[in-house]
Amino acid sequence: MNRAEREAAVRRIMERAAAPVPPELYAEAVRRGERRLRRLRLARRVLWLLACAAAVAFAVWAAGARPWAEPPSQTTPPVTGW
């Protein structure tokens, strides 16, 4: 099948009348779409809540543990009296 034949076949397919759609299909699609959007919205809110809780927990831990400060030396005593 060459290019012209393929284009002609595609045109024939596209010019055909659309298949009849059952009338209840639209209502079912809308209902499922709304339910999916609600679930996605809920999942997004839960993820944001978890991210904020993790940020707060990290901030509280960092304020108490001070991971940026150098820990005191445990192997040698401090030098005094120089």
Rank of each mutant, 00 (worst) to 15 (best):
residue 23 P to F: 01
residue 13 I to C: 09
residue 3 R to K: 13
residue 74 Q to L: 13
residue 8 A to E: 14
residue 49 L to S: 15
residue 75 T to R: 15
residue 45 R to S: 12
residue 68 W to Y: 11
residue 79 V to R: 08
residue 25 L to Q: 09
residue 73 S to W: 05
residue 55 A to V: 02
residue 75 T to H: 10
residue 16 R to P: 04
residue 39 R to C: 03
residue 28 E to T: 05
residue 35 R to I: 00
residue 28 E to K: 10
residue 25 L to E: 07
residue 20 P to I: 00
residue 13 I to G: 08
residue 79 V to K: 06
residue 56 V to R: 03
residue 61 W to E: 03
residue 55 A to H: 02
residue 39 R to M: 06
residue 54 A to T: 08
residue 12 R to Y: 12
residue 52 C to R: 07
residue 7 E to D: 14
residue 60 V to W: 05
residue 75 T to G: 04
residue 71 P to H: 03
residue 28 E to Y: 02
residue 6 R to E: 14
residue 65 A to Q: 12
residue 49 L to C: 15
residue 32 R to K: 09
residue 30 V to W: 00
residue 79 V to W: 07
residue 14 M to L: 15
residue 43 A to Y: 05
residue 40 L to Y: 01
residue 73 S to L: 07
residue 25 L to K: 04
residue 51 A to S: 14
residue 33 G to P: 00
residue 78 P to C: 02
residue 76 T to N: 12
residue 32 R to C: 01
residue 15 E to W: 03
residue 42 L to W: 06
residue 28 E to G: 03
residue 3 R to I: 14
residue 64 G to D: 06
residue 74 Q to A: 10
residue 20 P to F: 02
residue 35 R to W: 02
residue 25 L to V: 04
residue 22 P to H: 09
residue 31 R to K: 13
residue 65 A to R: 13
residue 18 A to P: 13
residue 4 A to E: 15
residue 55 A to G: 05
residue 78 P to H: 02
residue 13 I to Q: 11
residue 20 P to T: 04
residue 7 E to F: 13
residue 32 R to F: 00
residue 1 M to A: 14
residue 44 R to T: 13
residue 6 R to L: 15
residue 61 W to K: 05
residue 1 M to T: 10
residue 53 A to L: 10
residue 12 R to C: 12
residue 30 V to I: 04
residue 5 E to I: 14
residue 71 P to R: 10
residue 52 C to P: 01
residue 49 L to K: 03
residue 75 T to Y: 10
residue 17 A to G: 14
residue 38 R to P: 00
residue 3 R to C: 09
residue 18 A to L: 14
residue 5 E to P: 04
residue 58 F to T: 15
residue 7 E to P: 00
residue 49 L to I: 08
residue 59 A to H: 05
residue 26 Y to D: 10
residue 3 R to T: 14
residue 20 P to S: 04
residue 65 A to E: 11
residue 31 R to W: 04
residue 21 V to G: 00
residue 4 A to P: 03
residue 18 A to V: 11
residue 41 R to D: 08
residue 30 V to P: 00
residue 20 P to W: 01
residue 79 V to M: 06
residue 55 A to D: 01
residue 67 P to N: 07
residue 23 P to R: 00
residue 25 L to R: 11
residue 49 L to W: 11
residue 38 R to E: 14
residue 72 P to W: 12
residue 77 P to I: 02
residue 32 R to Q: 11
